[in-house]
Design a protein around this nucleic acid. Sequence first.
DNA 1: ACCCCGATCGTA
DNA 2: ACGATCGGGGTT
Length: 188
Amino acid sequence: MFILKKKLDESFFLENTVKVSKRLIGKTLQFKDSYGIIIETEAYRGKDDPACHAAKGKTKRTEVMFGQAGYSYVYLIYGMYHCLNIVTEAKDFPAAVLIRGIILITPTVKTLDGPGKLCRELNITREQNNKNILLEKDFCIWDTDLKLNYDTTSRIGISKGQENKWRFAVSKADLKILEECYKKQRIA
DNA sequence: ACCCCGATCGTA
DNA sequence: ACGATCGGGGTT
């Protein structure tokens, strides 16, 4: 259906987080034997972004966001769900992209539309926090030749920072095409 | 030790 | 619209 090119390298994640978030649409997330096309992302960028966990400064939890681009930031939310982010931009500039949705294509086909559902299905937990996905063998993101249209909206579930339209989600039309390619089988 | 709140999700 | 469920971070 599409070509898996190379694993994304550090230069991809060193760019502005908003740009990286847009560019991640259509790329493929791999964790162990699970592969999924990224269909939804959000940017969290710097101490001046009130929705960013790093807005309150560096803490034990957010330390990874202040580190090198290409590391995973996985945290527990609402005591029940995990969220997967990839750290972006220069060291000491705290920023990351939240991976909010994928179309899982292996080992099963499922549309995972939500960060908690995604981590639950792939079994991504805090054990996967602070991993260098530029080096990990089975935890990485692949470049592809997919060109998808996406919508730009406010981020979901935040109380501050709605003015930044930093959520990017594959257009309904393109999502439908992708799901038809891979046989629709939405998660319950 | 205590309190508040949260980058969610499923059910009503 | 609401509750589940618990860790992070600030305050006492």
